[in-house]
Design a protein around this nucleic acid. Structure first.
Lengths: 156, 156
DNA sequence: GATGAAAACTTTATAAG
DNA sequence: CTTATAAAGTTTTCATC
């Protein structure tokens, strides 16, 4: 079920649905230069094979009251599996947290949070991050402006 | 046109559409406990007022041949508006680049890229990043595992 | 792959309680 | 807000070339 590589039309379907996740099959077919029926089959195949993981509404962080994006890097004071895992899970459960990555290098975790200003940030640190045990050191970077944000580009 | 604050039902609509961007109005209405007609009006309002910025298909980075996510922080050797701006735009145009943020602190830019292993990463550095003029210093962090990724949580 | 057709469902608008 | 209606369009399946 995952044998065939993507062809040009598959990639066009992915690009179109990435641009507009609610595109109907008829419009999509027209956009990619196919008749509706095979277009529909390809789209279902791309979903079934996992190229398309899902569809989502993209919401506005500012309008929802968390205009600041802050990057927090964290080192833990122990590095056994259990501590690393527990910390990551605790972070992932917090609503302010947008992203959690376990990383190589100087820090163990890389976390991105959305907060309402320095106040919101302080609150997050004091009431959420610093209450999770095991943090040795953390370093925060406020973002000033986002120039790009989004999913992977479908290769040519 | 942007006077009214969100109520509980609006927030449920946002959460449902974030979870499934292709939910039809009837299912959505049922999910949020409303009849289809007002549900449809609220959804259009949330779009028109910008709470919903759009809809997108979420694609699989691995399946599309770029399984590694690398975080690159960059300092530029000059900090006038033109240099900062030009660098950010050049980064945003590269297909490997998923995110570009201008930041406070030690580095000027924070960039997230998707590449195919250390090979793909080296190629990105040599053929793309290092060909952009003005870089004083950069620091790369490979991510090992992603524990969370997604948009903002709709507040309670 | 293209076409066509049919049933079920969705979208969009409008009117009335 | 709800219920109801209705035309237009979409989705999904299926048979055929």
């Amino acid at each position: 079920m995952e044998i065939r590589p993507l062809d040009d039309i598959d990639r066009r379907i992915l690009r179109s649905l990435q641009r507009d996740g609610r595109l109907g099959n008829n419009h999509l077919a027209e956009e990619v230069g196919l008749s509706p029926s095979p277009c529909w089959q390809r789209t279902r195949r791309l979903e079934a094979e996992g190229y398309i993981k899902g569809y989502t509404a993209v919401l506005d962080q500012e309008k929802l009251g968390a205009p600041e994006t802050v990057i927090i890097e964290v080192t833990l004071n122990r590095h056994d599996d259990a501590v690393l895992e527990t910390f990551g899970r605790a972070m992932a459960e917090l609503p302010e947290v947008l992203e959690v990555y376990l990383t190589t290098g100087e820090y163990d975790y890389y976390i991105k949070v959305a907060v309402d200003g320095t106040r919101g940030y302080e609150e997050f640190l004091r009431h959420k991050l610093y209450r999770v045990p095991g943090i040795q050191h953390s370093r925060s970077t406020f973002t000033l402006r986002c120039l790009k944000q989004g999913g992977i580009s479908v290769p040519a």
